[in-house]
């Protein structure tokens, strides 16, 4: 770009000129037929919109989300308050808690995840139909929160399932949860789905684990084809 042309940030003039040119058919090249299209001829004066089917579906998903009724710890109390009077998450099209994962689109993970619960949570998440979204509520789902140094505490929900939105707080206020859910709806409407994350803890069959000292010790207690989760505490954050 040559230096005598100033860098223009205000493009209203350009846009206005382009629109006028298209409407009057004076644009260089061809006439834009959006304003005098065949569709308009067909529909007459009745209003219509054009959109992509994907975009429509994303809008639908974001506008009517079925939450899984899933309580773990302290945050679930604030989550109940968010569903109930005063905060009423239902106003945003996201307030019907579903008791079964098979009917739910969104799982709010409200609390500390410990070693015994993580495989069960993973199973519940796996049972939800696609597309599914995860809201991590509270510091425990980010890093383990105040219990991070505990011998039994998973250092964040992202170790087990992918999380779309993290809401910090201990616990987050209902307003914060509503904001987080609204952000999730925005992301869904924009067609952004869950990012792929590294998941160190996965359910696997006991027989597939590396034969080390611990596995040898447990061999008498656990069947080969039982699902297990193996925690490498030393490697977790």
């Amino acid at each position: 770009m040559s230096s005598d042309q100033p860098f223009v940030t205000d493009d209203t003039q350009v846009l206005t000129e382009t629109r006028d040119a298209r409407m009057t058919g004076e644009a260089p090249g061809a006439t834009d037929d959006r304003f005098n299209s065949k569709l308009r001829e067909a529909f007459g004066s009745s209003p219509f919109i054009l959109t992509k089917f994907d975009k429509f579906m994303n809008w639908v998903r974001g506008s009517s989300m079925f939450m899984l009724q899933f309580g773990i710890a302290c945050c679930s109390i604030e989550m109940m308050h968010t569903y109930a009077v005063k905060h009423d998450l239902d106003r945003f099209g996201a307030g019907v808690p579903r008791a079964s994962p098979r009917q739910a689109d969104v799982i709010i993970v409200p609390g500390t995840i410990v070693s015994k619960f993580a495989p069960r949570m993973k199973r519940v998440y796996d049972q939800m139909p696609e597309p599914k979204f995860v809201v991590g509520m509270g510091n425990c789902t980010i890093s383990g929160g105040p219990f991070q140094q505990g011998y039994n505490v998973i250092k964040g929900a992202e170790e087990v399932i992918p999380v779309d939105i993290h809401i910090p707080g201990c616990p987050p206020r209902p307003e914060a949860l509503i904001y987080g859910v609204a952000k999730l709806q925005e992301r869904i409407a924009n067609g952004e789905s869950a990012p792929v994350v590294v998941k160190p803890y996965e359910l696997e069959q006991f027989g597939d684990l590396d034969r080390d000292e611990i596995v040898d010790q447990l061999a008498a207690q656990i069947d080969e084809d039982d699902l297990v989760m193996r925690y490498n505490w030393a490697d977790s954050p």
């Binding site: 495989p119 611990i214 656990i222 297990v228 193996r230």
Partner: peptide, 12 residues
């Protein structure tokens, strides 16, 4: 030893 790995089963 808190860093020792642990295995937790889930029998379906």
């Amino acid at each position: 030893d808190q860093d020792r790995p642990q295995v937790v089963p889930l029998r379906e």
